[in-house]
Design a protein around this nucleic acid. Sequence first.
DNA 1: TAATTGGACTGGACGGGCTAGTCCATTGCA
DNA 2: TGCAATGGACTAGCCCGTCCAGTCCAATTA
Lengths: 237, 237
Amino acid sequence: MRTDSGPRRSAAGRPAGPQPAKRQAILEAAVAVFLREGYTRASVDVIADEARVSKQTVYNHFGDKERLFIAAVEEERERVAAGFAAGSPDAPGPDAPGPDGTEPDGTEPGEAYDDGDARTALIHFGHRVLAVLLDERASALRRLVIAEVARHPSLRPACAEGEPQRLVTHLAELLGRRTARGELTVPEPATAARQFVALIVQQGLYQSMYGTCPLADAQATAVCESAADLLVRAYRP
Amino acid sequence: MRTDSGPRRSAAGRPAGPQPAKRQAILEAAVAVFLREGYTRASVDVIADEARVSKQTVYNHFGDKERLFIAAVEEERERVAAGFAAGSPDAPGPDAPGPDGTEPDGTEPGEAYDDGDARTALIHFGHRVLAVLLDERASALRRLVIAEVARHPSLRPACAEGEPQRLVTHLAELLGRRTARGELTVPEPATAARQFVALIVQQGLYQSMYGTCPLADAQATAVCESAADLLVRAYRP
DNA sequence: TAATTGGACTGGACGGGCTAGTCCATTGCA
DNA sequence: TGCAATGGACTAGCCCGTCCAGTCCAATTA
């Protein structure tokens, strides 16, 4: 019996079905616990406690541990995707103590990186990709999905291609524009984009998977610069 | 009570300590079950059954589920490393129904790929790397370690860098030789090698992690060829 | 050769602990 | 008053790790 932040008033006094606020609290707790413990070790009781909700309420809302799990992964996936769409790794969430100085300028979401020379634009793009992909929660989600996808096939489709595919598309457009401008000569922008993303992402993903140190800034810069150098060198006009 | 393959006679009539054959059987069963089920779901009883051994024997040999797990991962890791060292994904094992025609010629283990032009050599190398890295058991081991490394930190060091590092070293030497021969101009072979491996490996690893289709031959060829093209284009003399 | 010894192994039972999911009497907003 | 939510008890089940009576066998002893 808590008395803090009353859950029952959902803004406008609606007739109140199964309280969406509760549902959200459960989802967030579920995300936290599943990311922390994995599917099997996560206990529904702990999730209920952490959501400040009775276990029965959990079952009323989701019916099943499995379905709760799927919903939690979906939830977190959307959160990550939103952060990605915003071009910034820290989406609206209770975490993210403050914007660290990785991105001083206020570049807009889907910005085109069309200022400066190609090398600079590529490096800039690379840093953005790394910031989004190596966000700690995104990494934890990735590890969780990899661990469980074999036993919960419904986790597969969205994540398997979604993440990188949009990056590749954006970058291909960038390369196309640079080619049109005569600054580069990229015969197959789609392929080149896929390759650049692979160059940027591989080491960081590897380290985030195995929980090694999360890719120091110096490493990230080296990766981005050498990848940009390779592309510029290959596709100089 | 089984009567098959008498376990007690270990070649020469040794005084018989804790039977190594049993230990090996347990390890192999443990590898199979852990790869199949993951750490938490794997049950010691099932492992014992699968090893045709009493549960007590398992505890006599390994003492603990945790230690059995570590030993099993180590075992499988060595198996994979051996397969890698042999340059062929299928090491001595009961599986591998037959050598499929991916590697018609009998190239030796640490061969130098010095025949043909650079592009061909790179493509050849890339295919080799993919064959080793995407071997089904190696992939399953990777997924298992990723899933459990957070809770069993002793799994980390060997695998985190071991696998790709040796590939990179080999390739750097190849690039150095080609540069010395005047066929390419690679200013930093180590960096270029790391980049090439990233290009080759990224997509396949991604698919093997998420259990998508295991990278069709056509895809593999496309990846290898475009990666080789990129390097040759960037480093043409 | 025959009996004995001792260690590895078996198989089945069991304690203690944890978990998914259900049930229900009660509470407290709207 | 009605409906969501509560919380705690409860069932049924799985699993780790231990225990133990008994088997099997190589080496040793008589």
